[in-house]
Design a protein around this nucleic acid. Structure first.
Lengths: 231, 231
DNA sequence: GGCGGAATTTGCGCGCCGACAAGGAAGGAG
DNA sequence: CTCCTTCCTTGTCGGCGCGCAAATTCCGCC
């Protein structure tokens, strides 16, 4: 078994409050999992046999309905848990997680979960908080879908991405992983056509700089004003 | 301190796996909380000082956006936890919970939470599962909002309500609490006008029986067919 | 350097469903 | 019984944004 350095996971909120010995115990059951761009950690409907912590990179979690239409549930950022189907007693993964860029994760077999939370109850509390935060996000998204117009939702999504995965660049804050018009459409319950038109209009106003699978926010307050507009 | 009977909460999933002594310990911190129809257990934005378990009745949880538009987040059923803001580290309630019918709940001060999960780690696991289930529901709802037409969403909402709160009656399965067109609109990101038209059409086909704040499902498979239709 | 495919742009038309207006029905209070 | 409030129904109109088609640009790859 390869020895994994404790410092890799010490900063993850999921393992906050665990001491060095506990971290070593947790790590002793983990296996590294390389995910080249495009590869899936798991696919919707597969038996849920593992859960993961993202160390480096970025994953897209998507969900299909019966008719094959797809939405983008969320992006997984470093230090996030993902694939925690066993926390909700689901025998299968409810979505698909694939690498948006070359990524590295740690994987634990589900069988290790029960022992881990029994020995380290803090883990259950931390996981509860993580789920609670995601529940909050989901309910906010439902509210946005229910009450906002498409342009506002796209503005909100872009601002959130810039906050979570933005890197300062010459022209503003650049979202530092490939992001297509289709991705934004699947995040905002819209279509790639509408997203394309919207970004073109914003670019004309100097709010963003839009490229092929790339997006730079030039005027965050301007976007925020669009997101906050009533209508 | 009034002695509350253990059997009141023994069936709640939140307290599954706790023995009699643990249940008594939990109950020793609880206070009964009567909620006449229309009264709120808490309102959005208030400091979150308590969490609750519904014993009897039915609550509507709503959420407002900055412009005052409202959605109906969920109905709270007996044996459900609600107001668990502290599980997600939120200092205020993110929504409003008001009684749809005369209801009875148990309330705990937030200060009791830390001790309770420390003494009974199963509680954290149970709460985690409950949050996970709600997260699943929320993500399914986002998928529905993103990919379905209004009529399908209304059909889905009605079927879910009939399953959760249906009581067999002469003509079919009656949803056994007051439910207005406005409620259904707020659940499905629609308007009371569209909901009214839809129910009228369904009634003409014999799928449902719609009254003032009341709804009876006569042909669940027929509704399911509408919900499943592609388009 | 040229080729092929994927991502994006843009024009055009129409359909769902939201918004307003006005009227009707049901139920509770006195 | 009557009033008044709340809830519901139904008609009409119009706009947002989806859907298709087709052209264009960009990038990787051979």
């Amino acid at each position: 078994m390869p020895q994994i350095d404790r410092s890799l996971i010490a900063d993850a909120p999921a393992f906050a409050g665990l001491d060095a010995a506990a971290l070593d115990d947790v790590l002793s059951h983990a296996l590294p999992c390389r995910l080249p761009k495009g590869e899936a950690a798991f696919r919707q409907g597969e038996p849920a046999e593992k859960f993961f912590l993202l160390l480096h990179g970025r994953l897209r979690v998507t969900r299909l309905n019966a008719q094959g239409q797809q939405i983008l549930v969320r992006f997984v950022n470093p230090d996030d848990l993902f694939g925690v189907a066993m926390a909700i007693q689901s025998p299968v993964y409810p979505g698909t997680a694939e690498a948006a860029v070359d990524s590295l994760a740690l994987a634990w077999p589900n069988s290790a979960w029960a022992g881990m939370i029994a020995r380290h109850p803090t883990l259950a509390v931390n996981t509860m908080r993580a789920l609670g935060a995601r529940l909050q996000d989901s309910q906010q998204r439902i509210l946005d879908l229910s009450t906002q117009k498409v342009e506002q939702r796209i503005a909100g999504a872009v601002l959130r991405l810039a906050r979570q995965a933005g890197r300062p660049s010459e022209a503003g804050v650049k979202i530092d992983f490939p992001l297509s018009r289709q991705d934004l459409a699947e995040m905002t319950a819209s279509t790639l056509y509408t997203v394309s038109r919207t970004l073109s209009a914003w670019e004309a106003f100097g709010l963003v700089e839009a490229g092929r699978q790339s997006l730079t926010v030039r005027d965050a307050p301007g976007l925020q004003a669009i997101a906050d507009a009533e209508g």
